[in-house]
C-alpha cells in the first residue's frame, strides 16, 4: 500500500482498540449509514410541490417535482402557460432530471466510501451529499427564473402578464392564479441526510483524529 494511499484513507483501527471503544468508532459509521439510506430513499419521494389556485379550478392544479421527473397537472399547466408564452415545463432541467438518480447513487457510494476513510478527506467524499439539498433549490430557482423571465413576447396574454419569477418556496401570484410552493418529503429527507452527515463528521473526527495524529507521529500507518 503506497504511502499516499495510506495518507488518504487514514489509519486502520487496531483490533484491541476497536473492542474497547466499539461505540466510539461505530457512531460515525452508523450515522453515515442512516444519512446515505435516507438520501437514496429520497429518490422515491417528491422534492417539491407547487399548487396553483384559481376560480375555475376548484381542485387547484398541482405540479410535483421528483428528482427525475415532474408529475401532476403538467399538461394543463403547460396548456395555460402557452397563453403567457412560457416554454413547456419538460424543457426545463433536462440534464438534471436524466442524471439525478445516478447522481444520488454516486453520492450514496461516496458517503459509503467516506465511512472507510479515516482522514479529513472523508469530508470531501461526503461534500456532494451535504450540499445536494441546497443545490436542488438553487437549481430550481435558476429554472423558475429562466422560464419566468423569458416569456414569448408574441404570446396572446403577453400584454397582461409581465415576466416574473415564481417563488421557489411560499406564495406568489400569476394572472388569476395564486401559487403556493413548498419542499416535499424527498427534499426534507435529503436535508436531514445532509445534517446527519455533518453530525457524523463530528463523531468521525473525535474517533479518528487521535489515531491519525498518533500514526503521523510514528511516521507510519498501522494496518490492523
Amino acid at each position: 500500500m503506497s504511502n499516499f494511499f495510506r495518507q488518504i484513507v487514514g489509519p486502520r483501527v487496531p483490533a484491541e482498540e476497536l473492542r474497547r471503544h466499539t461505540a466510539r468508532f461505530a457512531t460515525p459509521t452508523v450515522i453515515l449509514s442512516i444519512a446515505r439510506v435516507l438520501l437514496l430513499a429520497s429518490i422515491f419521494f417528491p422534492y417539491w410541490h407547487m399548487n396553483l389556485e384559481a376560480p375555475q379550478y376548484p381542485d387547484g392544479l398541482q405540479v410535483t417535482a421528483y428528482v427525475n421527473y415532474l408529475s401532476g397537472d403538467v399538461r394543463e399547466i403547460d396548456g395555460l402557460n402557452h397563453y403567457i408564452g412560457m416554454r413547456p415545463l419538460h424543457e426545463a432541467a433536462q440534464l438534471e432530471r436524466t442524471s439525478a438518480v445516478w447522481m444520488i447513487i454516486a453520492m450514496f457510494l461516496l458517503v459509503e466510501g467516506a465511512a472507510f476513510v479515516h482522514s479529513r478527506w472523508a469530508v470531501l467524499l461526503a461534500l456532494p451529499a451535504i450540499l445536494f439539498p441546497a443545490g436542488f433549490l438553487a437549481d430550481l430557482y435558476y429554472w423558475l427564473s429562466t422560464f419566468g423571465q423569458n416569456l414569448d413576447p408574441h404570446a396572446p396574454l403577453s400584454s397582461s402578464v409581465k415576466p416574473f419569477t415564481p417563488p421557489v418556496l411560499g406564495e406568489g401570484l400569476v394572472g388569476q392564479f395564486r401559487t403556493v410552493a413548498e419542499a416535499g418529503t424527498g427534499w426534507w429527507m435529503a436535508a436531514l441526510a445532509s445534517v446527519l452527515t455533518i453530525v457524523a463528521f463530528v463523531f468521525h473526527r473525535r474517533a479518528y483524529k487521535p489515531l491519525f495524529d498518533r500514526a503521523a507521529g510514528e511516521g507510519e500507518t498501522c494496518v490492523a
Partner: peptide, 19 residues
Amino acid sequence: AICGFTFALGVLAEPALAQ
C-alpha cells in the same frame, strides 16, 4: 454487495420512476 444492490436499485428505479 452493497454496491451491487445499489446498482440494481438504480436500474429498477429509473423505469419505475419514469413518468
